[in-house]
Design a binder for these strands. Structure first.
Lengths: 103, 103
DNA sequence: GCGGATCGGTTTGTGATGCAAACCGATTTG
DNA sequence: CAAATCGGTTTGCATCACAAACCGATCCGC
């Protein structure tokens, strides 16, 4: 096996799952995004989005702030420094894997 | 979300899992590889390799031939045309996703 | 102002998944 | 002939992803 394909084994599984990869890609460098925005962009169901966000938060990759804007609940998500680092590392590793795939 | 990151949702989940990506990458363009070779290259456990191979076979992506070489069992795996096509499609899509990730 | 739809999410239920350990028959080795 | 090894498979379990059901709060019709 070429070394770069072996790297696939080390791809952060938390980010590797497509739903969470989408979420992280959106949040990376965006300051903050709310629940409904992520819902539209990812096309996940609400339940799904909610649980993936919870998982990313538990990992310390994102922070979730619930507040009230006017009288409505508002859930804002932003990436943490740890999440930023993890995403950047994942991106580099993914690139290495993609480049290492046989043509 | 940039369109290419949305593509992540369509990455063939069967190939997307790192263990199976490794297996497919090895088998792609290699004629045939035996169980022990795959075992060494992927560093998976035997049970794991066995079940991932079974899954790929069930999907029609690979063919598994069990034979006896001399007096020992020998399991040879090769990629099928369907598997080749699926892998090539996955590779292209992965590249699109990797390229679309925010810098 | 009250009955129902809607908003913004969370919890629950369930089937699929991944992994490692236990197992298995056959073979080689001491 | 007993025990270790080879080449795998099956089992058991813990985790996962997903969708559907649920939930409190607001908004709308009347």
């Amino acid at each position: 096996m070429s070394p770069s394909v072996a790297d696939a084994a080390e791809l952060d599984p938390l980010i590797h799952a497509p739903p969470r990869l989408m979420i992280m890609a959106i949040l990376y460098g965006v300051a903050s995004a709310d629940f409904l925005y992520l819902l539209r962009e990812t096309a996940l169901t609400k339940g799904n989005l909610s649980s993936h966000l919870a998982k990313l938060e538990a990992a310390g990759y994102i922070a979730i702030e619930k507040s009230f804007v006017g009288k409505k609940a508002h859930t804002a998500c932003r990436i943490t420094p740890g999440g930023t680092a993890a995403f950047a590392a994942y991106r580099e590793r993914l690139r290495a894997v993609a480049d290492g795939l046989p043509a």
